[in-house]
Amino acid sequence: MDGAHDLGGMQGFGPATWPGAEQALPNDWDARAFALAVTSSSQSTHAFRHTIERMGHARYLCVSYYEKWLHEAEQALVETGAITHAEVDAWVDRIAAGEQPPRREDPVATAQLLEAMATSHPMPPAAAAAFAVGDRVRVRRMRPAWHTRCPRYLRGATGEIFRIQGDDGVPDVNNAEREAVYAVRFEAHDLWGEDTGDHVVLADLWERYLEAA
């Protein structure tokens, strides 16, 4: 889905930082929304991101960061049928009226969750890689129906395979297939035209996003 989340190269947003922007969790509710999304989600990372991408583009650009995660937590469970928006609305009214929210402890599950959160599962080496380091590649043109990790600003651009990162589930098919992921190196002028500086951009791209150039 090509949406408002795909920001690379856009103009007109203003300064990159501002007073207060160094905080990770500006408000107490940011922390709770973060933890709620992390603990409640049973979706793949790709589906998690796609739920946020579907929240409405104007809204995506206006709301704070963890409001997006809060949206994910609620919307994903509504879509599985586990809860309804009306049930959340009802709790809004109850808490606004002064009712104390319930607590529930589950020490065994919490210990397992923390253990899982602190355990790394590195990407395995690529089983089969169509491209080798140094190969020239072009990013394919596309109009993805679902979630993708191929940003618009790279499509059609030519770059060079810089490194083979490993083998990973393909976002566009929600991990139903696996293939090689490559770090591809692009020169600034191949992305933005002449007179745009001499920096380079490196992005990690799945094999199906690329063709030989």
């Binding site: 509710w29 922390a31 709770r32 929304a33 973060f34 933890a35 709620l36 992390v38 603990t39 409640s40 809060l70 937590a73 609620e74 469970l77 586990a82 809860i83 049930e87 959340v88 609305d89 709790w91 809004v92 109850r94 808490i95 929210p101 319930p102 607590r103 529930r104 402890e105 589950d106 020490p107 599950a109 919490t110 969750l113 923390l114 959160m117």
Partner: peptide, 24 residues
Amino acid sequence: RARALEALLVEKGLVSSDAIDAVI
């Protein structure tokens, strides 16, 4: 809304309060 969603998910047994505290 964040507090309401947390309350609902705790009530339904979909998350536990100590897990949320521990992640934070």
